[in-house]
Design a protein around this nucleic acid. Structure first.
Lengths: 165, 165
DNA sequence: TCGATATATTTTAAGCTTAAAATATATCGA
DNA sequence: TCGATATATTTTAAGCTTAAAATATATCGA
């Protein structure tokens, strides 16, 4: 008796594009949610997503983050943070200083004003996410969380073997 | 005997931020993969992600897509597609025409050259995704796919109730 | 101690992205 | 038929993003 060409056939389509489809759906979900958030942040707080992301990163590091640390955390280029940080400095949401002993390095952190504004925005942000993902059961949330961790680990393993930082 | 304050306590942390954490992980995974793909597309084909995305959308519609249809499919603004399409036209990857009877509307589709180039790039793209997500089991892939569909449905339901297109 | 090398950041040039206004064409309804 | 309204797209102004080059400072090793 011949073996079936595709042993996993019962689980669904078996044309070898399952991972590609998964990636496309991941991307689509992200874009969908990002679009919602962008519009709401703009309407309610007149702030962009990239600026909020910087404030959120700094909120987790009250002692401050370097430009490079911020860039790695947000997974954006170094030159990128330069510009966004510049605007947030001008608006008084963050402050910047050199650590003693290294004049190349800059640290940035939230100002009091920035912390106050971030706290308000973060509360709204969480409420929006709760609303948008409200259709998922507690169990689904935790399953997704675990599976995405697995996906992340897979990508990071390949990333290293490829030689990029 | 008092009821526990958080009935689902056994499933993990119960501070009400599970959905937020899930969203942050989703975003992180997406950025991680996007960064890999961007670098590889650039190195191997000297093309940007947005341009590839347009070609991929057109590949699925050999009869052509309107500017608006493309914009909705890619979840980007209308003005955005104008620019990317312009560059692809100049490079000869796509062609554009008015449908008979409506001079407001433009259709675009791949040229032969565009189709040829897309086919090569799509093969590489699929191989990269297969590699990056290679650490996931077949079952995990299909679970993720199903859960992300659920997430997407949840967001789309809220989107409608909020009044945005 | 001082040239070579490494590290941290900014600058540059090009392209991507958005929201809102502007333009052009089509359709609807008296 | 023709003004009002709707639809499809482009333009505009501002900001975001990248990769690579440039700048500035620190560290290493003879």
């Amino acid at each position: 008796m011949p073996m079936p060409a595709y042993p996993e056939t019962s689980a669904g389509l078996r044309d070898g594009k399952e991972k590609l489809r998964l990636w496309l759906k991941l991307l689509d979900c992200t874009h969908l949610i990002e679009r919602q958030l962008r519009g709401r942040f703009r309407a309610d707080f007149d702030i962009t997503l990239p600026r909020f992301d910087v404030l959120a990163a700094l909120d987790r590091f009250p002692e401050g983050l370097t430009m490079g640390g911020l860039s790695r955390r947000l997974r954006v280029s170094q030159g990128n943070v330069t510009g966004v940080v510049e605007r947030l400095l001008k608006e008084g949401e963050i402050r910047r200083w050199n650590p003693p002993g290294d004049r190349r390095t800059f640290y940035i952190a939230l100002t009091e004003q920035g912390q106050r504004n971030f706290d308000r925005m973060a509360a709204a942000h969480q409420a929006w996410i709760d609303e948008l993902l409200g259709g998922l059961a507690v169990q689904e949330i935790s399953q997704l969380q675990a599976l995405l961790s697995r996906a992340k680990a897979s990508v990071e393993a390949k990333e290293k073997s490829h030689g990029d930082a």
